[in-house]
Simulated scan of single mutants.
Amino acid sequence: MNISAFSWRSIFGVNIPIGIIGIILGYYILPHKEPLFPDAKLDVPGILLFFIALSLLIIGLTTIEKNNPVMGSAFIIFSLACWALFIVQEQRTKEPLINLFLFKNRNYSVQSVGILLVQMGISGVLVIMPFYLEIVRAIPPDTTGLIVLALPVGMILTAPISGKMADVIGTKKPILVGFSLCAIAQFFLSTITADTRIGYIGLYLMLLGAGTGIAFSPLTTALMNESSVSDRAATSGLLRVMSNLGSTLGVAAVIFIAILAAGPKIAEVSSHLIPPSDLVFAFDFAFLFGMLISFAGLFLMLLVTPSEGTAHQ
């Protein structure tokens, strides 16, 4: 809606009052607790290497999206080098930013990747669906925003219920159900055409949001339960990292696949030589990729085994 009334840059201004309100509420509402380990030291070299490695990776993926694969690949290679240095640093320091020994626990490793895959699936759809609605269907931005809103609504409706279910039946079953629903929703999205009813598209998006909401909450709980009390702060940070990395990879992947599938037809549509509806198949390929991501998450979750840290599994 902001885009219809103002420029596209105005969408970033929405976060300013939200951030200010969050800071004020956090200051007055959140309880003050003494640190569990007041003598702990920050792993400054690890923090710097992590920041540089992640930044280079994001820049590299973004550069590849802009049809500059050579420069993008160079950034990614430098990123991999920084990741290697980060791993060496974390193994050498006494108080690492991320305790890499936690990844020797298969459940911890698998569920960390699960967080990444959930975010990859949903972020890709959130980015590419507006292009389909606006380019192929010629729907205005404000209406497009309302249609895409079905996805977070699905998450809001299911996430609290999923959390309660995980407390009763354990985390594994809700996660499997969530990934299954995501795969089904992505399959339905891959079948849309230039004439698919908007109501059906909204239903598919809500189903994807519901699956994401069902899977994400138990995933975070399961991952936290696999770590000791002293490692839970680092695990909480890892959750955010995997979520952000999944979002970045998901957006980069679906845009790359859609552009690759469309090929020269993008220029032909821009030149009005062919109708925008001829690009539908490119969006379908992108949604099929999302379905494969969900199936990968489903398969990985089958590898999770019962452990002392995850009750009721």
Rank of each mutant, 00 (worst) to 15 (best):
L181H: 01
A210H: 05
G178Y: 01
F188D: 09
A185N: 02
K164V: 04
I192V: 13
D195H: 13
G202A: 14
I214K: 05
V177F: 12
G163W: 00
P174L: 11
Q186F: 13
V168G: 02
L205F: 00
S180E: 02
T191G: 03
G163H: 05
K172V: 11
F179R: 03
L205Y: 05
D167K: 12
T171M: 10
F179M: 03
I214Y: 13
K172F: 12
S180V: 00
T171D: 08
S162Y: 11
G211M: 05
L181G: 01
A210R: 07
F188L: 14
K173N: 08
L203A: 15
A194T: 07
A183R: 03
Y204N: 01
L181M: 13
V168E: 07
L207K: 11
A183I: 01
L189D: 06
T193C: 05
I192F: 14
Y200D: 12
K173P: 00
A185D: 06
G199T: 12
F179V: 02
I175Q: 09
L181F: 04
A166V: 02
L203C: 08
V177D: 03
F187S: 01
T196H: 03
A166C: 01
F179H: 06
S190R: 09
L208C: 03
Y204R: 00
D167A: 12
K164P: 01
C182D: 14
A194G: 11
G170R: 03
I169N: 01
I184C: 13
S180H: 00
L203N: 02
M206N: 01
L207F: 06
K172M: 04
T171V: 11
T196W: 14
V168T: 13
L207H: 10
A194N: 06
Y200G: 05
F188K: 06
V168L: 12
L189S: 07
A194L: 00
G199I: 11
T212A: 14
F187N: 01
L176I: 09
C182T: 12
L208Q: 10
G209N: 10
I192Y: 13
A215V: 02
G170N: 03
F188S: 08
G199L: 14
I201C: 09
T191A: 12
G170T: 01
K173E: 04
G202H: 11
G213M: 07
S162L: 06
G199D: 06
Y200M: 15
G202F: 11
S190H: 10
L208R: 06
G211F: 09
P174V: 07
S162W: 07
I201N: 05
T196R: 09
T171Q: 13
L208W: 01
A215I: 02
A215N: 00
V177M: 13
Y204Q: 04
V177A: 15
D195Q: 13
L207Q: 09
G209V: 05
G211W: 06
